[in-house]
């Protein structure tokens, strides 16, 4: 009986924790990344390392992301205040009633692209995909994007050889698959480097070149946070954007690399440098951090067409002004 009471008490405490979470002290903010500490989150690392948040009067703890980590869920559960999520995650969450707002868009060009050897002719028209063996991760963004590319190119699925992508690159390295999905600024760099070492050159297929603009990672927070603590949101956004801008500035390259090296456990200086350069290209220079509204609308349309969502979510209403 006593044991049951203790269990009931613990369950109640857990529920209360879920209900109120870290809201008890809004000044202690947490920021959940989407992926592990490496060059692709250079600006986030730089912000914490160089004290951008502290200077803005905020106390922010950055938490590493990874597979299984979902910033939107954590925001809703009150476990984190800000986070990074991909556009499809945001749209899916909105469809299911979550109230998350996009603060700014980290990547102006989606890092999710396809790598192929230069022994294949450069793909300048989608029709060239016909007959090729293409890797896609079933259920992943790349499936949605590739389906859109194929539909746009008028290529029935039976005219390409789809290969289910796993965690290792072996099928691409062994040439079993010709066109392989990669994150341009992480695996893309590693694969390119590795193949170049063996005398092979590669190219990347960027869906945006064919008019498919599927938005990638963005910084998000809850609608409630914007309503209740607009100052904090402003300060956080300003500080983080400034940090990203500075981290991507060529003049700060060495300093940024040093910050990454301090956090990235598997740091390889040469690779990290290349990854940083690739990340810089993807974040853009002129329109840094800006929200590409058209791309968001297109992303929503693609997801509707691909039946990833069943009803429109009017994504433009959830993009922070």
């Amino acid at each position: 009986m006593r044991k049951n009471k203790v269990i009931c008490g613990l369950v109640l405490l857990a529920i209360l924790q879920l209900a109120w979470g870290s809201r008890a002290d809004a000044r202690e903010l947490t920021y959940r990344l989407k992926w592990l500490f490496n060059a692709s989150v250079a600006g986030d690392i730089y912000a914490e390392d160089k004290g951008y948040f502290t200077k803005a009067g905020l106390q922010v703890k950055i938490k590493e992301g990874g597979p299984g980590k979902d910033a939107i869920k954590e925001i809703e559960l009150g476990q984190t205040d800000f986070g990074v999520a991909s556009a499809d995650q945001v749209i899916r969450a909105l469809e299911k009633g979550a109230e998350v707002v996009v603060l700014f868009q980290i990547f102006q060009i989606n890092p999710l692209q396809w790598i192929y050897r230069d022994t294949l002719p450069q793909i300048t028209a989608l029709s060239q995909l016909k007959g090729k063996s293409i890797g896609i991760t079933f259920g992943g963004n790349d499936e949605t994007i590739m389906n859109t590319l194929l539909a746009k190119g008028g290529i029935p699925k039976k005219d390409v050889k789809i290969y289910s992508v796993r965690f290792d690159f072996t099928p691409f390295l062994t040439k079993k698959v010709q066109i392989w999905p990669v994150y341009r600024n992480s695996q893309g760099v590693i694969l390119k480097n590795r193949l170049q070492a063996e005398g092979e050159n590669v190219r990347f297929l960027n869906p945006a070149d064919f008019g498919v603009n599927f938005v990638a990672n963005s910084v998000i927070t809850s609608k409630k946070m914007i309503e209740t603590d607009p100052d904090i949101v402003d300060k956080f956004q300003t500080a983080l954007l400034a940090a990203w801008r500075d981290a991507m500035a060529p003049a700060n390259q060495e300093s940024t690399l040093a910050s990454i090296a301090a956090r990235d456990k598997d740091n390889n200086a040469a690779i990290t440098k290349l990854q940083l350069l690739a990340t810089r290209e993807l974040t853009g220079t002129q329109n840094f951090g800006s929200i590409d509204k058209d791309a968001w609308i297109q992303t929503e349309q693609i997801m509707l067409q691909e039946q990833q969502i069943k009803r429109p979510v009017n994504i433009q209403d959830w993009l922070h002004k």
Partner: peptide, 18 residues
């Protein structure tokens, strides 16, 4: 019960209709 108590969306914990 957690969904109800905390007021979570269907994204975090799906409701019965979903």
């Amino acid at each position: 019960l957690v969904k109800l108590l905390v007021g979570l969306s269907d994204y975090v914990i799906p409701g019965i209709p979903l």
